[in-house]
Amino acid sequence: MTSPSLTLAPAPMDPAGLPRHVPVAAQTRDGVTESVHYGSVIATAADGSTLLSAGDPQTPFYPRSALKPLQAVAMVRAGLDLPEELLALAAASHSGAAAHRNGALRILELHGLGPADLENSTDLPYGVREREAWLRAGGQATQLAQNCSGKHAAMAATCVINGWSVWGYLDPAHPLQQLVAGTVVELTGETPHRTSTDGCGTPLFALTLGGMARAFGKLAAASASGGSAEAAVAGAMRRHPAMVAGEDRDVTALMRLVPGLLAKDGFEGVQLVGLPDGRAVAVKISDGGDRARMPVTVRLLAALDVDPAPLARLAATPVLGGGRPVGLLQVTDFLGFPDSSHFPDDR
């Protein structure tokens, strides 16, 4: 009898090589701490210098969909010219509502393209209500329904505008992706520490929280009167926040509640925010969960003197027991923790 083959588990990771995150949020239930979320944060000034930080903000991470506004800047620089609501969709992780799916299709049709030209992965709509309605109507996973379809439609359109091959537009060697990579380096002030592939198939760059915050500060502070690609993307996102995310999404709510604020989330617990004066914040929740991302972001904004009162419903989440509140998910005093640059090497 032939012995079955065994798949060996990978060796455990060395704790010394893990990011030095700190506790940033905790959930309590009737006076007992039930869960703790660790993470790292940074707030930067208009000149890119650090105002506040906690955890390990200089360890490279993958910004995931928070890169989309930077990718959109590259496409506008390459000649992409869309109505504002469609440009916002090009920088979106949308919920998959009809407006989002139809918008992505419109980008394609404006440039003589169709859904078959998309190279992103297929998926159901990301939003809960949108997904449920889609499934009730008999919908299946498609590329248009996938949350990155606006970006991919815009990428294919940018290729048509420049006479580049649409086929293979996700190849890192493709002129479009080379342009995106150069734009990311310029806006973040960093050379990517590593490269990978995002869930939708797009090239992905490992950067620091500080680099991403600097980029969002530049976008948010870009003057509309200057006619720059940064100003075009930021203006479209601000004026059409529901196209950037969706009606039930916290990123949409945040941009509506704070005039001039620019926000984009990313999978694995990532949040970026830029303010009109060029300051910015960047958040990474270490466990990749989503629920601590916005409360931590609101706490950072309050530390930058953004009025927290309108953001109260985003700052903490009630914990229910039998339908009644019995606890709370809220932030820790994470700004009282030093960042890892202050820790001794042998700790």
Rank of each mutant, 00 (worst) to 15 (best):
P4I: 05
P4Y: 04
P10N: 11
H21T: 15
P23V: 14
A25I: 02
V32E: 14
T33Y: 11
I42C: 12
S49F: 03
T50C: 09
L51H: 02
L52C: 09
Q58L: 12
Q58G: 02
L70F: 03
M75N: 05
V76P: 00
L87G: 03
S95D: 14
A99M: 05
E109N: 13
G112P: 01
L118H: 12
L118Q: 02
E119K: 09
E119M: 01
Y126A: 11
G127N: 06
N147P: 04
N147L: 10
C148E: 08
S149Q: 04
G150P: 04
K151A: 04
A153F: 06
V160G: 10
V160W: 00
I161T: 14
N162Y: 08
V166R: 12
G168A: 11
D171Y: 04
P172W: 09
L176S: 13
L179I: 04
V180S: 05
L187F: 09
T195A: 13
P203Q: 06
L204E: 14
G210R: 15
G211D: 06
R214N: 11
K218H: 07
L219R: 09
A222W: 10
S225W: 13
A229M: 08
V233W: 10
A234F: 05
A236G: 10
M237L: 04
R239Y: 00
P241Q: 09
E247P: 09
D248R: 10
R249G: 02
T252Y: 03
L257T: 10
L261Y: 03
A263K: 09
A263E: 01
F267E: 07
L275P: 05
L275K: 01
A282I: 14
R291N: 11
R291M: 12
M294I: 15
T297S: 09
V298P: 05
A303I: 08
P310I: 01
L320R: 07
G321Y: 02
G321P: 00
G322F: 07
R324P: 00
L328K: 02
L335M: 03
P338Y: 08
S341Q: 09
H342Y: 11
H342G: 12
F343E: 14
